[in-house]
């Protein structure tokens, strides 16, 4: 049973990686599906295209800023919502997760196109923050909920203000929670396709859009697409390998809190 589970979930991903090291002739040759004479041509092709490194940079740059700003806005908000039991406010932030993204895209596009902002990093960062703030707020809320009030009170007794206690006591203790929020946020931003499809310009195109554009050409270069897909997924896989615990705790925050 376990073997079946592992093969089902890992097999297709390995197939993608394997195809990325095959020549297109070998990919088309169905008589030897497992024959592998690894070549790096596909990777050379992908990286030989100067723009591809720009796409990697765009994805990274947008994710970095979107994650940072979301945490700066989201962590204090989560603290306030947790301490003061602000359920209505929490619901407003949750609405951002329920709402279909496309119903926002049209109006955003209206406004941003009129302002001439479509195709700037700022618009991409704003749109990703919209996804990431609810992520940070919900993960951090369940984190602060599980933190005993006494910690803060101890700080007050020692002469700290409320904000001082938040800054010097709660925040340092929240590092695992913040790491969870940051990692999940980064993954969501890196993987985002829909907002990028509409709001990026030639200079701010992110990896998912770039890989998707690969296919629109007449003949499909499977080797290159698989190489590009592998490059795009690799950072996430590495994060998952080293930060599995954080991803799982973020994913289940709220679903099973004690």
């Amino acid at each position: 049973m376990l073997v079946l589970v592992v093969v089902t979930f890992l097999g297709p991903l390995l197939w993608m990686v394997m195809a990325s090291f095959k020549s297109n002739v070998d990919i088309q040759d169905t008589s030897h599906p497992f024959r592998l004479a690894p070549i790096l041509d596909n990777y050379a092709n992908v990286f030989g295209n100067d723009a591809y490194l720009d796409f990697v940079f765009n994805s990274f740059w947008i994710a970095l800023w979107a994650v940072l700003i979301s945490l700066i806005l989201g962590v204090p908000a989560a603290y306030a919502m947790s301490r003061f039991n602000m359920q209505k406010s929490a619901l407003v932030v949750l609405l951002a997760r329920i709402i279909p993204g496309i119903s926002l895209l049209v109006p955003w596009y209206f406004v941003f196109a009129n302002l001439g902002w479509v195709g700037s990093y700022g618009v991409m960062i704003l749109s990703h923050m919209f996804i990431l703030i609810p992520v940070s707020v919900y993960i951090m809320m369940s984190f602060f909920d599980s933190m005993p009030m006494e910690l803060e009170e101890a700080g007050l007794v020692d002469g700290l203000t409320h904000i001082g206690a938040f800054w010097r006591i709660l925040l340092p203790l929240s590092v695992p929670g913040i790491a969870t929020a940051a990692i999940l946020s980064f993954i969501f931003s890196w993987n985002n396709f829909m907002f990028a499809l509409v709001l990026t310009g030639a200079n701010t195109k992110t990896l998912p859009v770039a890989v998707f554009d690969f296919v629109s050409y007449a003949s499909i270069d499977w080797g290159a697409i698989m190489a590009a897909s592998t490059i795009m997924t690799m950072p996430i896989i590495v994060i998952a390998l080293f930060a599995q615990r954080y991803i799982v705790s973020g994913l289940t925050a709220g679903a099973t809190k004690g």
Binding site: V5, F9, I27, F193, V215, M226, T233, A240, I247
Partner: peptide, 26 residues
């Protein structure tokens, strides 16, 4: 167990566009 749990996590975190391309080939 730890290893299997990571493997099970992968399809969910992998970039959806890459997953779509991968299944298009398969």
């Amino acid at each position: 167990q730890a290893l299997v749990r990571v493997i099970v996590l992968l399809p969910f975190v992998a970039t959806p566009v890459a997953i779509a391309m991968m299944w298009r080939l398969i």
